[in-house]
Write a protein that binds this DNA or RNA. Structure first.
Length: 236
DNA sequence: AACCCATGCAACCGCATTCTC
DNA sequence: AGAGAATGCGGTTGCATGGGT
């Protein structure tokens, strides 16, 4: 009855991920996708729990992740959505492409909470948009006209992000084509790691990713690993 | 220079829900 | 139908780092 345990806890490694482990995980996911997280560690040669692998991938290694502080517009959007639905970080993250629930949760606890307290704002009360750039906010909330609209959108099933393209990591490894630098062509919507880096010995980029984030080194699908690579398949 | 403390963030934990047998 | 594993998620912890003294 039922399934097998997710992992043998005695053999599972914990703590910070090493560059080697990251390489193995990325390599495996790029070639195989993630049909079963439980089986993944064994197949990828990792002494990690499947849960840990999923977390590492979704929160840190996914090529479409943005790194660094949230923009004013993103921050304002988080504040607005949080005012409506509370600590449902996954829902909030779904509205911010390239951001993870964990990241937003951390950002909320470290930056926004503090900021709001400082401003002596009751988090449950209506929050105005006075601190964000009007242009940025309009760009983000183009389809949001009031809080009721936003609330409705948040609870629909197949919700598109408010800005930018969505990305399903069920299709990892499929090479996408890029219409312009901000839009992956529908149906071929997948980012991929540069082949030269993936197949060669040069995994140095992972060290950089560790330190600065994927986005900083332009490995994400939206801004391109060099525009020409994304358009022609060749690195600059 | 050395220590202490505050901060930020990656990773873990545990619970709830979903899925499989 | 129900038991139990898989998955997803929010809360929490622990460590690295930077700033202050």
């Amino acid at each position: 009855m039922g399934r097998q345990p997710c992992c043998d806890k005695l053999l599972v490694k914990k703590g910070p991920w090493t560059v080697e482990e990251d390489k193995k995980l990325i390599n495996f996911l790029l070639n195989n996708g993630h049909r079963c997280w439980r089986a993944l560690p064994k197949l990828a040669g990792l002494r990690r729990c499947g849960k840990s692998c999923r977390l590492r991938w979704t929160n840190y290694l996914r090529p479409d992740l943005k790194r660094g502080l949230l923009s004013d517009a993103e921050e304002q959007l988080v504040i607005d959505i949080h005012a409506l639905i509370g600590n449902i970080w996954s829902k909030i993250a779904a509205r911010l492409p390239g951001r993870t629930d964990n990241e937003i949760k951390n950002y909320w606890n470290t930056h926004i909470k503090k900021k709001l307290l400082k401003m002596e704002i009751d988090e449950s009360s209506t929050i105005t948009h006075q601190n964000s750039s009007k242009d940025d906010y309009e760009l983000l909330g183009d389809i949001i006209h009031n809080d009721e609209d936003l609330f409705n959108i948040l609870w629909t099933n197949d919700e598109p992000p408010l800005v930018g393209p969505s990305w399903s990591n069920n299709n990892v490894g499929v090479v996408g084509t890029v219409g312009d630098k901000n839009n992956i062509v529908a149906g071929e919507d997948l980012p991929t790691w540069p082949l030269e880096e993936k197949n060669g010995d040069s995994w140095m980029f992972l060290d950089y990713c560790q330190n600065f984030g994927v986005q900083d080194f332009r490995f994400d699908c939206y801004h391109g690993f060099g525009q020409s690579f994304m358009e022609t398949g060749h690195k600059d």
